[in-house]
């Protein structure tokens, strides 16, 4: 099993040879190639081997999906359900931003308080642990009863999804602030606010950004599932349910790909910010 990690040749090097184009770009070529291969098999399988009648209903080839994406996103054609894809996209984006924003407004101050006070922290800890461990989706039925079908239920689910990672990371970052540095600043006469500004905030910023990255992922997840069940008229999640019920697998996958691309773009962007902000930090400290 383990031989290759052990081989001295990997430890030292391959025999002397000029590096070829392939060697220089191996990860990209292999990674991109594999994705292309998956798409090729997916595209060609039904053409070559055929599909049973039942399966045909659930199948869309990459070309079908691309065609759907093109007609929906570029030509802005009407969906067989209601409205255009952009209307749904905007609805989901609104929910996402609203819910995420709300969670930021709540999580940051609360996180700082928890991080700075041992007593408050100890009292909140069981609740935060419990809510963070539980999939927030479990509260959907009660949220539906409290907020009624529609917009606010979806917002509540997105909020519940995003708030805990943000809260926990802010709290961890604040708590992690170096006691020595705090004392140094205090010895120069800094007050509580200045301590927060000079030491605590710069120290916790990378943690907060890492929390934000997690929160964004959870918020997107929240948008999807809340729109599945939340009863709003518009939203990409709504489209997915309706598309699958009417066997429009091409539309279903098209929306899935939109979600994927948006998630990857946002995650990558936040990751960039995170790396920039964490440069001073030794790599050892892990955020979660």
């Amino acid at each position: 099993m383990a031989t290759s990690t052990v081989e001295p040749s990997t430890y030292i090097a391959p025999p002397p040879a000029e590096e070829t184009y392939y060697e220089a770009h191996e990860p990209t070529i292999l990674g991109g190639g594999f994705i292309l291969a998956v798409f090729a098999v997916w595209e060609l399988y039904p053409a070559i081997f055929g599909l049973s009648k039942g399966m045909k209903l659930f199948f869309a080839t990459p070309s079908d999906i691309i065609a759907a994406l093109y007609s929906l996103l570029i030509l802005n054609e009407k969906l067989p359900m209601v409205g255009t894809i952009w209307q749904h996209f905007n609805a989901s984006t609104g929910t996402f931003l609203f819910g995420l924003g709300l969670s930021i407004i709540v999580a940051l101050p609360l996180g700082v308080v928890l991080g700075r006070s041992q007593t408050v922290d100890a009292m909140f800890d069981p609740f935060i642990t419990a809510f963070n461990a539980t999939p927030r989706l479990v509260f959907l039925p009660i949220v539906l009863i409290w907020f009624g079908v529609g917009f606010w239920t979806v917002i509540a689910i997105v909020f519940l999804g995003a708030v805990f990672p943000l809260l926990i990371n802010t709290y961890a970052g604040v708590k992690n602030a170096d006691k020595l540095l705090i004392n140094v600043v205090r010895s120069f006469g800094a007050n509580e606010w200045q301590i927060n500004k000079l030491v605590v905030l710069p120290n916790s910023l990378p943690f907060i950004i890492a929390g934000l990255r997690l929160a964004i992922g959870r918020a997107i997840l929240g948008v999807v599932v809340a729109e599945f069940f939340g009863g709003t008229e518009f939203g990409l999640g709504v489209i997915m349910v309706q598309a699958s019920q009417s066997y429009r697998v091409d539309i279903l996958f098209a929306v899935l790909i939109i979600f994927m691309v948006v998630s990857l773009l946002i995650t990558a962007a936040v990751k960039q910010i995170e790396n920039r902000l964490s440069r001073w930090r030794p790599a050892k400290i892990k955020t979660f």
Binding site: I12, A13, P14, P16, E19, A24
Partner: peptide, 12 residues
């Protein structure tokens, strides 16, 4: 004689 040839870096 021993030369290290790490990938993507100069030989030492």
């Amino acid at each position: 004689n021993l030369t290290f040839r790490p990938k993507n870096r100069e030989a030492v």
